[in-house]
Amino acid sequence: MASKKKKAPPPSPQSLGLPTGGVETHAHLDMEPLDAEVGAVLDRAVAAGVSRVGQVFLGPAAYKDGKAKFADRDDVFFILGIHPHDAESANGVNLDAIAQAFHADPLIKALGEIGLDFFRDWSPFEAQRIAFREQLSLARELDVPVVIHSRDAAEETLRTLDDMGFADRPVLWHCFGGDANLANEIVARGWLVSIPGTVTFPKNEAMRRAVAAMPLGAMVLETDCPFLTPIPYRGKTNEPAYLAFTAAEVAHIRDIEPAEVWHATARNAAGFFGLTLPSHT
């Protein structure tokens, strides 16, 4: 009986040969299983060309408990806010704690991820609406960028941002999964669109058409790790190093070189978050 051929392992992120300077705009490195090996995860990202990683803390308690994990890393910046799933915790005490953290810690670069999630009912929709508006008001008060979570709620998310006067303010639409019409709505307001690893999934045709059509200057990249792992590692834990595969797929869709996507999205992210990147980026 003939032995079965072993399946070849997927290529490593380093094998794509992307240069230093990439920016991972959205990671949850304080979540399992990544929290057990933060240093190694970040070292693998550096080896794959990722120079900056945005660590998202979902609330002031997570920030207080988790920030020390990154004390010896100069490649990590922070994003802090109350997720719509936790909307009922957006009380005065926690909002005050977020404001104090922004004043005290220059590594916190944006308020997020905040917004609306009508896909799941893990938090009452009305509580989400209140929390969203209160955090948008706080962002205006602090004069900081916002990172938006919107799932099955695009129309209301856009309307809320418009009502709160956020057109032409610094807004990043996290984990974009929509079509070209939604991308146009976002870009027309002067905001950025963040492309996750799901763009590598063959069935996401509408999203791929949106990525082909939108301006490269309106785009950044993210993993949303440990979730949404791109092909060829789909089904495994996501991590910042895999951002390289998302960049390569965006480049393939747009028929340009991966390094062009890598550098352009890094510049866009640096401008949004106020980051310093390697001089050649």
Rank of each mutant, 00 (worst) to 15 (best):
M31P: 03
K64M: 10
R73L: 09
R120L: 12
K4W: 10
R267T: 11
P202L: 06
T223M: 04
G22F: 06
A248E: 03
L111S: 08
V50G: 02
A247S: 13
A213E: 15
I79D: 00
A27V: 05
R169K: 14
A8T: 15
P11T: 01
W191Q: 12
D224M: 05
T229K: 03
G190I: 10
P10M: 01
A104H: 08
L136C: 05
I256S: 11
Q55F: 02
E141C: 05
H85V: 07
I253N: 02
D163Q: 14
F70V: 11
D105Q: 01
L95V: 06
E260P: 08
A212K: 15
M164E: 15
Q14H: 07
R140D: 12
S3Y: 13
A167Y: 05
I82L: 09
G178K: 00
G235Q: 07
A251R: 11
F102K: 11
G112D: 02
R151F: 04
Q14K: 14
F119L: 13
F57K: 08
A210V: 09
D105G: 02
R159M: 11
T198Q: 01
G112V: 04
M164C: 12
H85M: 11
G177D: 10
A264H: 13
P196M: 02
V76W: 00
V56G: 04
L18N: 07
L95P: 03
T200N: 09
A248T: 00
E205F: 01
L138H: 08
P11V: 03
G66M: 03
P84G: 03
A213G: 15
V53Y: 08
D162V: 13
D74V: 04
V146C: 06
F176R: 01
A218F: 12
L192G: 08
A40S: 14
A210G: 13
Y242A: 01
I148F: 06
M164W: 10
H26S: 11
P196L: 03
G271R: 14
F273M: 02
G115L: 05
E185H: 14
G81K: 02
A270D: 03
D72G: 08
A40I: 12
D163N: 11
D179M: 01
R234T: 04
T157V: 07
I186A: 01
P278I: 00
K6G: 07
A269D: 00
L116T: 14
A244P: 12
A153S: 15
H149L: 07
T229P: 04
K236M: 01
D121W: 09
W122N: 14
E257C: 00
T20C: 11
W173G: 03
A270I: 05
V250T: 07
V41K: 00
K67W: 00
L80Q: 08
D43T: 15
T265H: 00
T237F: 04
V53A: 11
A8Y: 07
V261Q: 08
G39W: 01
D75W: 04
G22N: 10
T265N: 02
A2P: 15
S150N: 06
A139M: 10
I82N: 06
K64F: 08
